[in-house]
């Protein structure tokens, strides 16, 4: 199967065989795909390699054969998003999140747009924490693991802004009665649902909640970028 001029981003590249790269890509219509880019390593291939860095909007063409595709062409598809500083670390976090949570070749039409939007927000210098929470929310939605953000898990009672809840990863918000788990205010869950940025305390609570949810979807594992990002941002 040959795919032409598909909007895509490279999420990660690693050396493959002698002079090739194995690219993990997020594409608009084909979800995450693994593509082998032949002959792009070594001194004479420096230009091609630079064009296949993460965060560049690309139009990729490839031929699918089994689990992996073979890259047939890569063109620029728009101006590159210049991520710098902490936004760059946050971008690496987005990429790890997508590679770890999204299976290859499952198409999730909304995911590509959400990813491009998040990159644009990082490049524009918007709040890192809020940009990441919005992307995590949209990613979980696109994968069919959407969060329950407006009512209680057990009895569908609407959430109260003033009340505290514990977010159970597999179920949703439960009134807080001192039980363990990520504790978050109703107002912050409602803000996330309405796409309204909460205060710093709310953002911190939502971060802890998202980590618990994502860890549950990873089967209890954790993301390496949490450590990198956490340590970098602690230095503020």
């Amino acid at each position: 199967m040959r795919i032409d001029q598909q909007p895509a981003y490279v999420l990660h590249a690693r050396p493959y065989r002698e002079t090739s790269l194995l690219l993990e890509c997020l594409t608009r219509d084909h979800g995450r795909v693994g593509l082998v880019a032949r002959g792009v390593r070594g001194e004479r291939a420096r230009l091609a390699r630079a064009e296949l860095e993460p965060f560049l909007p690309l139009a990729l063409s490839w031929r699918m054969r089994g689990e992996l595709g073979t890259l047939a062409g890569a063109e620029a598809a728009g101006a590159p998003q210049r991520l710098a500083g902490d936004a760059l670390l946050a971008g690496l976090y987005l990429n790890e999140l997508v590679v770890r949570l999204v299976a290859r070749q499952d198409s999730h039409p909304e995911l590509f747009g959400a990813y491009a939007l998040a990159l644009g927000r990082l490049a524009a210098g918007e709040s890192l924490a809020w940009t990441l929470r919005r992307f995590e929310r949209d990613l979980l939605d696109a994968l069919g693991y959407g969060l329950l953000l407006d009512r209680q898990a057990e009895d569908e009672t609407p959430l109260q802004p003033q009340a505290d809840y514990v977010y159970l990863p597999e179920q949703g918000p439960q009134p807080w009665r001192g039980q363990p788990g990520p504790r978050v205010r109703g107002a912050d869950l409602l803000a996330l649902a309405a796409d309204r940025m909460p205060d710093p305390e709310g953002l911190a609570a939502l971060r802890r909640m998202m980590r618990a949810v994502i860890a549950a979807h990873l089967g209890g594992g954790e993301l390496r970028a949490w450590r990198v990002l956490g340590e970098a941002l602690r230095h503020r």
């Binding site: 993990e24 990429n95 790890e96 993301l223 390496r224 990198v228 340590e231």
Partner: peptide, 11 residues
């Protein structure tokens, strides 16, 4: 170099 997907962090 820092590369979460290659398992390379500060440690």
């Amino acid at each position: 170099r820092l590369s979460p997907l290659d398992g390379l962090g500060p440690d």
